[in-house]
Simulated scan of single mutants.
Amino acid sequence: MRHAEKDTSVDPKDPPLTAAGTQRALALRDSLLRTPVVAVYSTDTKRTRMTGQPLAEAKKLTVASYDPKPTGLAELAKLIRAQPRGKAVVVVGHSNTVLETVEALGAPRPVPAVGDEEYSYLFEVTIPANDAPATARARRYGAQ
């Protein structure tokens, strides 16, 4: 998913979340509480870490960093594919990296693009146990 709403008035280069973004991060946690999450990854920015942190804390996990460049996404995809089947991994990125992450996992984009003002997408990628191709679907969470 993409990070929640950011507050560029505080720090334009590495902004934290707004109050609405903090609420969205809590909504993410609440929407995935019953999901067997085994890892939470984010890029190395305040807004992505702050988006994943409430879920990571609820699951007693640490938010791990990943590199959103193509080589980093390939490495992230390997890490995700090595996780036990039936478990979930949450990846928090940016509007210009989340769909590339879906593709790195072998699934087609479920939407053509993520706009700069779209924060509610949650992309679910399913990686089959056999050699079948991965699939992805887009759903929404939090305030619309």
Rank of each mutant, 00 (worst) to 15 (best):
G93D: 06
V90S: 09
R47G: 08
A129T: 11
E124I: 12
E124V: 13
H3V: 13
E75Y: 00
E118Y: 05
I80L: 07
P16G: 14
L55W: 07
V111L: 05
A64L: 11
P16I: 13
A39C: 02
A107S: 10
R81T: 09
P108M: 05
L17Y: 12
E103Y: 01
K60H: 15
V98N: 04
P128T: 10
R29T: 06
V91Y: 01
G93H: 05
S42A: 15
A64S: 12
P70K: 08
H94F: 11
L26Y: 02
V91P: 06
R49F: 09
V114G: 10
E57V: 14
A64Y: 00
L105V: 06
R81W: 03
T62M: 10
E117C: 00
P133A: 08
R109G: 01
D67R: 04
L32H: 07
P108T: 07
T18M: 14
D67G: 08
L73F: 04
K59T: 00
L76S: 04
G86H: 09
R49H: 09
A27C: 06
Q144Y: 05
Y41Q: 01
L55G: 03
R2H: 10
T97Q: 08
P68S: 12
H94K: 07
A134D: 11
A107T: 05
V40Q: 11
P108D: 12
A134L: 12
A88M: 07
E75N: 09
K6R: 15
L17S: 11
R29A: 10
G21V: 09
K59G: 06
G115T: 09
A129M: 05
T48L: 03
T45C: 01
A82F: 02
M50R: 11
T62H: 09
E124A: 05
P12V: 15
P54H: 06
S65L: 05
G142M: 04
G115M: 07
L105I: 09
G86R: 08
Q144K: 11
Y119G: 02
A74N: 00
S31P: 03
A74E: 13
K46A: 13
K46F: 00
Y119F: 15
A107M: 08
T62F: 03
I127A: 10
K60A: 14
D116A: 07
R24Q: 15
A19T: 14
A20C: 02
T126H: 14
L28S: 11
R2W: 10
T18V: 13
Y119R: 03
N130S: 14
H3F: 09
V92N: 08
V98P: 01
A74D: 10
T126M: 12
